[in-house]
Design a binder for these strands. Structure first.
Length: 571
RNA sequence: UGAGGGAUCGUCUAGUGGUAGGACACCAGACUCUGGAUCUGGGAGCGGUGGUUCGACCCCACCUCCCUCAGCCA
């Protein structure tokens, strides 16, 4: 479906270009059918999201179909736990596979028959070489391979042995079925690749029915063919496998063969994306589970407060190409800010409270002030927030000796309290022990009440606040990047010790935050803008007496930039 | 070293012979009861060398650099 948004001028990526050509030539009779085929051996992450959005998106755009298929051909790695999480995540992202949820394991019988057919054509044979021997016979980049001594077994013997492999007559690793292609091929994948191996392990769906399991290179093209897939989109590392993909299919079938197309997988700066490393982070306790908000897993992003819309927009905007690239994580952050700016309710929350007393405001008096819920969306309406004599403001919003261009509160200075009054600071009290500012004393100008006749007076700064006797306590969790900046590249690309590059301060827990009382009604995946602080979401760790919020992302902060550039300039 | 891919602003990405465009980031200004948002403007790029052509990011040649592959993983 096309949006009429001026920005999305229907950018045609190279895969869409191929589809356009195929349509024009009426290849596949105009059918367009894709698939997202994860192996259920781990949790999905933002890189998978790119593939999901690509495949389902292409199907939508071309009036085609997209299947969800579990590529469960290796029982020693896979589990139902992952199937459930994958189904949940794809759904959450907003995609619908209709009734086309498939499992490679559903095709095992048919794949077996196809293997028999290859044997009968003398295109496959049972090989008794050990894994080490197969490696030796395969040769190397510069050395051609050697034919297996079992390569010339008779078709009858191969048929019989393959049947016995199926029946579980042999031990793991003792025999395999191999394609008979070319041991001298410059492409190592074509040097008689293994098609089936013996794995005497229970499969999460087929139980103990099978003792042999097909390899990816054999199974994948067939799965695609069985499902009438037209365009089989995968990542770049499979480019070398395409000749084998085509060999398998053309050896067995002749019309409407699917074609494999490769694109570059997503890399994101300052985070970890490899399944292996994510597993280390989770299992060695660097993070708290697969849905830790610091992780780029779909479940982590969901808990962090990312919306499916933002993720889809991100995937759409990073584009699809064959160039290896690293997308700046700030681009992802931009997408969630953009989404939440339009939709998130504004509230006031003080992360590091500093007591502020309005000396000339009546004691035991409360006013309910009208506050806009979202200036970007008048439909969002207003709410009442209580104001009283003792308030809390953000500690960083007061400075006893302010730097240049500081618009916030300081002795003798005026600021506006958001939706309330202009106040002026007269003095402050320090803790004698620590020297820390303990409370500040101000006066307010009753004429300047927001919305009132005298409200037009301008001051430089506006602060958010909460009323001491109305505010509710909350725990707020702040997240930073998983990887240290200076180690960024090594962190994701270095071969070992990537844990050296981990940012040990990626989680900061603030326990004494104060938020508007209305937030006690928050639940599920509710998201808010804590004014001037960022976007936050309700965390399921919350209990009735203890609210917990996650910081999704900060607001853009030009003051922060001024400070940083001054610090650099002063040196 | 063999094979297969790739190289366009700082970052992603368009552009397949006719003024190199967009987004993020950055800088400046306007506006603002969020130092947010919004708006306006700006700087910033074709890996190199030759060749073909009136004209080359695009075609050709050579070179350089980067990625993937030697699992009975996917």
């Amino acid at each position: 479906m096309n949006t009429n948004n001026h920005e999305s001028k229907e950018k045609v990526n190279f895969i869409q270009a191929i589809i356009d050509q195929d349509k024009e030539k009426n290849k596949y009779n105009g059918r367009i059918h894709l698939r997202f085929p994860p192996e259920p051996n781990g949790y999905l992450h933002i890189g998978h999201a790119k593939s999901i959005c690509l495949n389902f998106g292409l199907a939508e755009k071309n009036n085609g179909l997209c299947n969800l298929r579990f590529d469960d051909t290796n029982p020693s790695k896979e589990d139902t736990e992952y199937i459930n999480s994958i189904i949940r995540d794809v759904k959450w992202l907003g995609y619908d596979w209709g009734d086309r949820l498939f499992y490679a394991s559903d095709y095992f019988d048919r794949m077996y028959e196809d293997a028999v057919s290859l044997i009968k054509q003398d295109k496959a044979y049972v090989c008794d070489l050990s894994p080490d021997e197969i490696r030796e016979y395969r040769g190397t980049f510069i050395k051609t391979g050697e034919n297996s001594p079992y390569r010339n077994r008779s078709i009858e013997e191969n048929l019989k042995l393959f049947q016995q492999m199926r029946e579980g007559k042999f031990e793991d690793g003792s025999r395999v079925l191999r394609a008979k292609i070319d041991m001298n091929s410059p492409n190592l994948n074509m040097r008689d690749p293994v098609l089936y191996r013996i794995v005497k392990k229970s499969h999460h769906r087929t139980g103990n029915k099978w003792h042999i399991y097909p390899m990816y290179d054999y199974a994948h093209p067939l799965e695609d063919y069985y499902e009438n897939i037209t365009h089989s989109v995968c990542t770049l590392e499979f480019e070398d496998h395409r000749p084998l993909y085509d060999w398998i299919l053309s050896s067995l079938y002749s019309t409407e063969l699917p074609q494999q197309i490769e694109f570059a997988r997503l890399n994101l700066s300052r985070t970890i994306m490899s399944k292996r490393r994510l597993r280390v982070l989770v299992e060695d306790g660097y993070v708290n589970g697969w849905d830790d908000p610091r992780l780029p897993t779909i479940s982590g992003l969901r808990r962090r407060g990312y919306t499916p819309e933002a993720i889809r927009k991100f995937c759409d905007r990073i584009g699809v190409a064959k160039t290896n690239s690293v997308v700046d994580i700030q681009f992802l952050e931009h997408c969630i800010r953009e989404d939440l700016n339009k939709s998130a309710q504004r509230v006031m929350a003080v992360l590091n409270p500093l007591k502020l007393i309005i000396d000339n405001y009546p004691e035991d008096y409360t006013e309910d002030l009208e506050c806009e819920n979202n200036p970007e969306d008048p439909q969002a309406g207003t709410r009442k927030v209580s104001f009283s004599r003792i308030l809390y403001i953000e500690r960083e919003d007061f400075h006893e000796d302010p730097p240049k261009k500081y618009f916030r509160l300081a002795p003798g200075k005026e600021v506006r309290l958001k939706n309330a009054y202009i106040i002026k600071c007269h003095n402050f009290v320090k803790d004698e022990q620590t020297g820390e500012v303990k409370e500040i004393h101000c006066s307010y100008d009753p004429e300047t009440k927001s919305g009132g006749p005298g409200a037009s007076r301008k001051v430089k700064g506006t602060l958010h606040w909460v009323s001491a006797k109305h505010a509710v306590k909350a725990e707020i969790r702040l997240y930073d990047y998983l990887l240290l900046e200076e180690r960024d590249n090594k962190g994701e690309e270095g071969k070992d010790n990537f844990t050296d590059c981990i940012n040990n301060n990626s989680l900061e827990i603030l326990k004494d935050c104060l938020v508007e009382p209305g937030l006690t009604n928050a639940f599920k995946e509710d998201k808010f803008q804590f004014m001037r602080k960022g976007y936050f979401c309700f965390d399921p760790d919350s209990k009735p007496d203890k609210l917990v919020f996650n910081r999704i992302v900060t607001l853009r902060d030009s003051w922060e930039k001024i400070i940083k550039s001054n610090q650099i300039g002063d040196k």
